[in-house]
Amino acid sequence: MKPVCVLGNGQLGRMLRQAGEPLGIAVYPVGLDAEPESLPQQQSVITAEIERWPETPLTRELARHPEFVNRDIFPRLADRLTQKQLLDSLGLATAPWQLLAGAEQWPQVFAALGELAIVKSRTGGYDGRGQWRLRATETGTLPTECYGNCIVEQGIAFSGEVSLVGARSRQGKTVFYPLTHNLHQDGILRTSVAFPQPNPAQQQQAERMLTAIMDELGYVGVMAMECFVVPEGLLINELAPRVHNSGHWTQNGASISQFELHLRAVLDLPLPQPVVSAPSVMVNLIGTAVNLAWLQEPLVHLHWYEKEVRAGRKVGHLNLNHPDPTALAAALQGLTPRLPPEYASGIAWAVGKLA
């Protein structure tokens, strides 16, 4: 099989490499500053763990590579303006929004979108960075460089957040995991819960929307779609053209992980529907040193990224799954004392979802 070069050498590239090993697929996560001649790129399929990148000798060379899968899709989805325009062109439900070009727009923005405005950087910005929640009296706090470089959305009163992770083959076949319920705190995903049998109406709506997006783009590989749950159904929040944090539970909770599924898709290998037979929970480890006492809980699978621990930085995650939701909830509660206090609310939320 062809090797796979992954543009970006963070935890997603690392987990793609790990997923390739049992299949005999050589996966090379590469930093943006790598020397092009150091890689077996001419024989490789190229993918990416990031949506946008600076121009370097490597990225200039890869931009011409005939096997760079989704190369022209990444910049379209990395810019929230063109991403929103795509969703609108497909008639898919999303929060009302507009480009924020200048401060003189604010009266019209609040008249059109309501009392809470969510400002988002067009590019970059993730895990709560590059976003501002503003009311009419707070617009003076927005940095001036945001104007022309941000969109503004209506603040949505949602009852929950879910994501759909799916994959599309080169022939247009699509497969999906069950919807994942997500809890964000300070803009960072803290905890995810997935069930083998999701809400049928929500699952069907989400699959229709993500299929339409991937088909329109001719996308190949794994894509994630984050949504708000509102009384009318689902509103698309954002798209990620790659493997996604909210799909990490699939490493231990599905017959095929999202990482293996992505490799299968880009290499044109069989793409069966992954089997999910038990509830799963993923707990993000954020700015927390490793604690081997977590392993005393027999349901815990530790995935440690070997990164320097810094405040607000994702350094690993814990996966737990069990056919009995009660046993899974008990394992989470047993884990709570072994984690810093700030994890308690996220675990309590997951236990509530399992009840």
Rank of each mutant, 00 (worst) to 15 (best):
G221M: 03
Y219N: 12
E51K: 04
A293H: 05
G221E: 02
A117R: 07
K120C: 05
R133E: 14
R242G: 06
P36G: 08
E232G: 01
A93N: 09
T288C: 03
L328T: 01
L210A: 05
L210N: 04
A265N: 15
L189V: 06
V4W: 12
A26N: 13
L77K: 05
E37C: 09
V193M: 11
P341F: 02
N319P: 11
L142R: 08
G247K: 01
H65R: 11
R313M: 05
T47R: 12
A78W: 06
S159N: 09
R76T: 15
A350H: 02
Q85A: 08
G102C: 04
G114W: 00
L299I: 15
F110D: 03
V275G: 14
K84V: 05
Y219E: 14
L39K: 06
Y219Q: 15
M209A: 15
N321D: 04
L235G: 05
D215F: 15
T137S: 09
R17C: 10
E306P: 00
F195A: 02
E161Q: 11
Q171L: 13
V300I: 09
S277T: 13
L271E: 00
L217T: 01
S192L: 03
Y305M: 12
A78L: 08
E104R: 07
Q105N: 15
V175I: 04
G31H: 03
G346W: 06
L58N: 03
G346T: 10
A201H: 12
L86C: 13
T180P: 01
A254R: 11
L39I: 07
L189N: 07
T174R: 05
L142I: 09
L261N: 05
V4M: 13
E226W: 00
E115M: 11
T94M: 02
R129W: 14
R310K: 14
E104Y: 08
P231Q: 08
T250F: 09
M1V: 13
P178D: 04
T180R: 02
P279N: 12
G247D: 00
Y147D: 02
G334S: 04
H301Q: 14
Y28H: 09
V315W: 00
A34N: 07
F176C: 01
S163A: 03
D268T: 07
V6K: 06
E21F: 06
T336F: 00
C227G: 06
V162E: 03
G221F: 02
I73Q: 08
A103F: 11
V300M: 07
G128C: 08
R170G: 10
A34L: 07
Q251W: 10
T250M: 11
I347D: 08
P107G: 15
P279L: 10
R264T: 05
G316W: 08
E297K: 00
T211F: 02
E138R: 14
P196R: 05
G128T: 09
Q205L: 09
I50E: 15
F110Q: 04
M225H: 01
G155T: 14
A254W: 09
A93Q: 08
R14F: 09
G287T: 03
G221T: 02
V230F: 05
L235P: 04
L299T: 15
F195Y: 06
G187K: 02
E49T: 06
H244Y: 02
G148R: 14
Q105R: 13
G312I: 13
L179F: 00
A103N: 13
E138I: 12
T141S: 15
